[in-house]
Design a protein around this nucleic acid. Structure first.
Length: 267
DNA sequence: AAGCAGGGGACGT
DNA sequence: ACGTCCCCTGCT
């Protein structure tokens, strides 16, 4: 059991920040996340996070996953004092961190996210895991590997409710299985190269590529612009957002804005 | 009650 | 540049 008290680390903030679709509440202040065949239960009360795992597992897996070696107070403090909106957004989502998630899982997850809402995205991904992923504990399934989706047809995926995204997933899986696009090479590329390469995949446009870069490759300058973010940039900044100020951690700023706007819309 | 709009976009023309 | 794509939810 690991206890962490850090005002810049909150599961409550992270689970609804839209970067992770496999984190679920499992009770009062309790959450569970499934990552690469491992499952972690967490509890957060009074600003303290408890991770139910051994010290060894924490050091090998979760410390890196939650990016806990990075000091997010720096990004928070660097928010422009004159930018009242961003000040509010950052304070609201102070506990957000950019998770280091699996590249393949991010690609498929954000293909599913297009023209879709978070609730249904979660449902689709859960169903995908239950149908094709390995059962790692009773009732808990890992995200299926590319090999496990190799022979899946468009019709099968449509049966899961993935709609027109089904053919994108079939095609993208084929491109990766055939190594026409190499995940390992993408991991070695810088942000701009990786973003361009990802867009060779079917169903991956600029926005999805940016999400994958930020959440699956930890490229901190990726700044995904969706309809919500776009509205904020227009409304609050007249489409003149000062990107240059935040070089090196624009993705963190994007998350503050997205989460703040998302929670205001939905509550 | 059923009908309709819209949701973290991308693709093909 | 613009219509279309699939399913679900919430509104009317």
């Amino acid at each position: 059991m690991i206890k962490i008290k850090n005002e810049f680390f909150s599961i409550k903030d992270i689970w609804n920040s839209g970067q992770c679709f496999r984190m679920h509440p499992i009770g009062e202040d309790k959450y569970r996340v499934v990552v690469k065949g491992k499952c972690l239960e967490m509890e957060e009360t009074q600003g303290e996070v408890v991770l139910f795992c051994t010290k060894e597992e924490f050091q090998n897996v979760w410390e890196d996953y939650f990016d806990l070696k990075e000091d997010y107070s720096v990004f928070f403090r660097n928010v422009s004092k004159e930018d009242r909106y961003l000040q509010r957004a950052a304070s609201f989502g102070k506990g957000i961190r950019i998770l280091k998630q699996d590249l393949w899982e991010m690609i498929i997850s954000f293909i599913i996210s297009t023209q879709n809402n978070i609730k249904r995205i979660r449902k689709c991904i859960d169903l995908l895991c239950k149908t094709y992923g390995k059962e790692i504990q009773e009732g808990i399934y890992a995200f299926p590997e590319p090999e496990e989706l190799k022979n899946v047809t468009e019709e099968e995926l449509r049966g899961l409710g993935l709609g027109y995204r089904s053919k994108y997933i079939v095609k993208t899986t084929q491109l990766i299985i055939r190594q026409e696009v190499s995940l390992e090479e993408i991991k070695r590329m810088d942000y701009q190269e990786a973003k361009k390469e990802l867009q060779k995949l079917t169903g991956v446009g600029e926005k999805v590529a940016d999400c994958v870069c930020l959440f699956g490759l930890h490229h901190f300058d990726a700044f995904p612009v969706d309809t919500h973010i776009n509205q904020v940039l227009e409304r609050e900044y007249g489409n003149q957002f000062p990107y240059e100020i935040y070089k090196g951690y624009r993705g963190v700023i994007q998350q503050y804005i997205f989460y703040y706007d998302f929670m205001r819309e939905n509550h």
